[in-house]
Design a binder for these strands. Structure first.
Length: 234
DNA sequence: CCATTAATTTAGT
DNA sequence: ACTAAATTAATGG
């Protein structure tokens, strides 16, 4: 209980075995600085980690688990921009811009994150080229990838869009042809940019065609070649 | 602590 | 929009 007031935990950045590519290039000295200016926390499924519109005081490192990056549209409407895998940073798109977060990040399962003081993060970027290089390459890769998906979504019809989302989840997020959706049907719709009804329709259509095997939240892609063809033809 | 029921959320049409 | 099913919270022993 000695740690209750000063918040000192057992975690230490120097011996962290879930380090980011960027943190891996830091010196022991810098890792110490990181350790003194960051804090690991458990986040529960459904909790919002960063909220769009709030002040950016921290950059968040996703140590384990999956997170959705989303924006709240007008009314109940929400748009999921991407799913983020472990060992990446949340909030980087807002690192330089204004003082506010542009996107919200919500946990799709129980997971661990580290809150890092944004000023310390910025110091590392200024002081260490290789750290900045890792961060920059991550940010630009993400940005291009997001654009790519949004552009595709813009000029494809329902089944093409939905095929895209399935391929995205399978190839880029989970890396397998069978996976447990961490998303509800509603969220799947928000990711695909279609209505909940059309999402359900597309799911059952693909199942009838023998392209998918659906068992609750578990989805297995049976005919990958056909799915790719549908994606390609829009 | 476990079991039952009530309430909220999710899925499918 | 509506109904059924499932998941989560509350209650009582």
């Amino acid at each position: 209980m000695n740690n209750f007031f000063d918040g000192e935990g057992e975690e230490n950045c120097l011996v962290c075995n879930e380090k980011s590519c960027a943190a891996a290039v830091l010196s022991d000295n810098q890792l110490n600085t990181l350790n003194n200016n960051s804090r690991e926390t458990d986040i529960r499924k459904g909790e919002t980690i960063l909220k769009a519109g709030a002040l950016t005081s921290h950059i968040v490192y996703l140590k384990t688990g999956f997170v959705k990056e989303h924006v709240e549209g007008p009314g109940q409407k929400s748009k999921i921009l991407q799913i983020i895998k472990k060992q990446s940073y949340l909030g980087l798109p807002s690192l330089f811009g204004a003082r506010i977060n542009h996107y919200s990040y919500t946990a799709l399962q129980d997971l661990k994150v580290c809150f890092i003081d944004i000023n310390v993060f910025l110091e590392f970027i200024k002081d260490r080229g290789s750290f900045a290089f890792e961060v920059l390459s991550y940010v630009s890769r993400e940005s291009l990838n997001k654009d790519f998906h949004l552009i595709n979504q813009g000029h494809k019809r329902m089944y093409g869009r939905f095929a895209d989302v399935l391929l995205y989840l399978s190839e880029e997020i989970f890396g397998t042809t069978a996976f447990d959706l961490l998303l509800t049907r509603q969220e799947l719709a928000e990711l695909a940019g279609m209505s909940r009804e059309n999402t359900a329709r597309a799911l059952s259509h693909f199942r009838e065609e023998g392209i998918l095997n659906i068992n609750g939240k578990n989805i297995e892609i049976l005919k990958m070649d056909l799915l790719k063809r549908i994606s390609k033809n829009g």
